[in-house]
Nucleic acid binder design. Structure first.
Length: 575
RNA sequence: CGGGAUGUAGCGCAGCUUGGUAGCGCACCUCGCUUGGGACGAGGGGGUCGCAGGUUCGAAUCCUGUCAUCCCGACCA
């Protein structure tokens, strides 16, 4: 490709609406252009990168025994009614009507469609296992798209679905996919961590996410997930799923007599602990949440934080948020109580489901809200002053310094970008949609399914997030849009131009993906652009060509060597 | 949806407080000059000032509404 023909427009400055590096760089280097909120044009350079990622994914999926197909992007509502998700998926599902007023949606994922394919085509256990995948644009009407390609509304995804006859088969399919995923990300030049995760709205039991870890020091951290990992063993998990053993702290309070005392203006745990001069760990914190449309009172030890996804899962909910003040007022009125947030407690409260975190059950002589503003109950004990809630669960957010449940070593936290996700779905969809096969014993059984996603466009963006410097992108070789760029310093120097053309033609003849910067620009412009665009190797032809030498630069290390054109060609061919 | 901010040329911004009919840098076009890290000079093209109302002799500027975008929380590949 000649640079003079390449459809690319680099910008001198970063776009003002971008926050994270991958977004800033991809726009500035002319890879993407926003069309609408969360919707981007993939310009020619970007499309080349995406196709590279896709092809790596294809090769590894095919190698793993999966077969590619393509399902419709627009789907009928009927299938979603069958699975039950039409009503629970929420506003992320982009719904629309066709000319006959039939309800349709833009595919955010394809469990329903693949299940319908499975039930129509797979009749016997002899046809199993099957793993089908596609690479396609998905649409999710995200509440807040951001970070460019890292969280768009329209994005490119590889989604695979496995069908097995039994759990053992699923375990095997799952392990094969996990292994394929490890290879895919490694080939894309991305170090990933496979972490346990919540299985969320898609449903199912076991799931893991593949996280690209991003360093904490980065100014704008694009990692949207907290990943906890053990410093000693292999345990790692998304914060929405992580569990831990706590280090022991004071849980027996100093108040030995149960009484309600004045605690004016102690709206937060910190204020209350300071006022009473006690550790937060002898306070029982009470928080009111709205799960779907139900009120929930969550109790947790004062020094700990509620993990909202865990709490939501206790009630098998789809949506959770902390209650607003007017909703708390409503609950108080219905309970014939009167307290504002900060003084809420479990005693006497009505119209809410109560769940206690495991941390509260061992509290003794503790402090808790008593539903009277500016007062708390101190010296409380379960079963004496307040009944211990029946529902006890782990709804606690793990913190750095907690201990690993597997080996007892310290847990640490880091930020990660989720680029892949694998789920054991089990029979969630096959049962709901009546997708069955005939097993060995002649019985009709629902398929045991799994699903496996990779964000293709997100993976490319994550690669930029992970590999760049102050001058621009540094593409891993395997997904770079071009392998090498040839830069003659002056287009007016005939020898330079002639040499550049020769190297260009030789590399082209060997099927190397090469750019010749034949533009009539000053050297600085061409060199800046080469760095910004992030081509892994650069052959610069300058004055030293008089001595038969060119400069060979490796973008990843910014190291250069002065060698002959032929040597430069050989170095590229040897990659 | 809640909290905060912004909409002026392809990109980055000034002008708005104190109304008088739009400007700077980059990019783009022409000519000259220049060619190892985003040169320079001269000339040029491009904007219903997000949109709709209102106030006014007159609105980018003041008022009202509306739309869009960005940031912080809930979503997820």
């Amino acid at each position: 490709m000649r640079m003079s023909n390449l459809f690319v427009q680099t910008l001198r400055e970063f776009p003002s609406d971008a926050e994270v590096m991958s977004h800033k760089l991809l726009v500035r280097a002319g890879y993407i252009r926003k069309l609408a909120n969360g919707i981007y044009n993939y310009l020619p350079l970007m499309w080349r990168v995406l196709r590279k990622v896709e092809n790596i994914v294809r090769e590894e999926m095919d190698k793993a025994g999966a077969q590619e197909l393509l399902m419709p992007f627009v789907q009928p509502s009927e299938l979603w009614q069958e699975s039950g998700r039409w009503d629970v998926y929420g506003k992320e599902l982009m719904r629309l009507k066709d000319r006959h007023s039939r309800e349709m949606c833009l595919g955010p994922t394809h469990e329903e469609v693949i299940t319908s394919i499975g039930r129509e085509s797979i009749r016997s256990y002899k046809q199993l296992p099957v793993n089908l995948y596609q690479i396609q644009s998905k649409f999710r009407d995200e509440i807040r798209p951001r970070f460019g390609l890292l969280r768009g509304r329209e994005f490119i995804m590889k989604d695979a679905y496995s069908f097995d006859a039994d759990e053992k088969g699923l375990d095997k399919s799952y392990e094969i996919m996990a292994e394929a995923y490890r290879r895919i990300f490694e080939r894309c030049g991305l170090e990933t961590k496979m972490v346990q995760s919540d299985s969320g709205a898609i449903g199912g039991s076991v799931s893991h996410e593949f996280m690209v870890l991003v360093n904490e020091e980065a100014e704008n951290n694009a990692g949207e997930n907290d990943v906890f990992y053990c410093t000693k063993c292999a345990y790692s998990a998304n914060s929405n799923h992580a569990v831990s053993v706590l280090t022991s702290v004071e849980t027996d309070g100093k108040f030995t007599k149960a009484e309600i005392i004045d605690t004016p203006n102690t709206h937060s745990i910190e204020e209350l602990a300071n006022f009473l001069n006690i550790p937060a760990s002898v306070i029982c914190k009470s928080l009111i949440y709205v799960v779907d449309s139900k009120y929930v009172l969550a109790l947790i030890r004062g020094d700990k934080t509620v993990e909202e996804t865990k709490l939501m899962n206790v009630f098998a909910g789809n949506d959770i948020r902390i209650a607003r003040n007017d909703e708390i007022e409503e609950i108080m009125q219905n309970s014939e109580l009167n307290a504002i947030a900060g003084f809420i407690g479990p005693k006497g409260i009505k119209g809410v489901e109560i769940v206690a975190d495991e941390t509260v059950k061992d509290l003794k002589n503790f402090v808790v809200g008593c539903n009277q503003t500016d007062k708390h109950l101190v010296g409380a004990n379960w079963g004496v002053d307040i009944e211990l809630p029946i529902k006890i669960a782990d709804i606690r957010l793990v913190e750095e310094g907690d201990k690993c449940v597997d080996c007892g070593a310290d847990l640490k936290v880091t930020r990660g970008i989720e680029v892949g996700n694998i789920f054991k779905l089990g029979t969630k969809y096959s049962k709901a949609m009546n997708a069955t096969f005939t097993d060995k014993d002649g019985q009709e059984k629902p398929f045991i399914m799994g699903c496996y996603g990779i964000g293709i466009s997100r993976t490319a963006a994550a690669a930029v997030e992970r590999h760049h410097d102050e001058n621009g992108i540094i593409w891993p070789l395997a997904i770079a849009p071009y392998t090498v760029i040839i830069v003659p310093v002056s287009d007016q120097d005939e020898v330079q131009m002639k040499t550049a053309e020769e190297i260009y033609n030789k590399l082209l003849a060997s099927n190397v993906e090469v750019i010749l910067d034949d533009r009539s620009e000053r050297a600085g412009v061409k060199l800046k652009d080469a760095d910004l665009i992030g081509i892994p190797y650069r052959i610069t032809i300058g004055k030293t060509i008089k001595d038969g030498l060119v400069e060979f630069k490796t973008r990843a290390t910014n190291e250069t060597e002065t060698i002959s054109p032929e040597e430069a060609i050989q170095k590229i061919l040897a990659l």
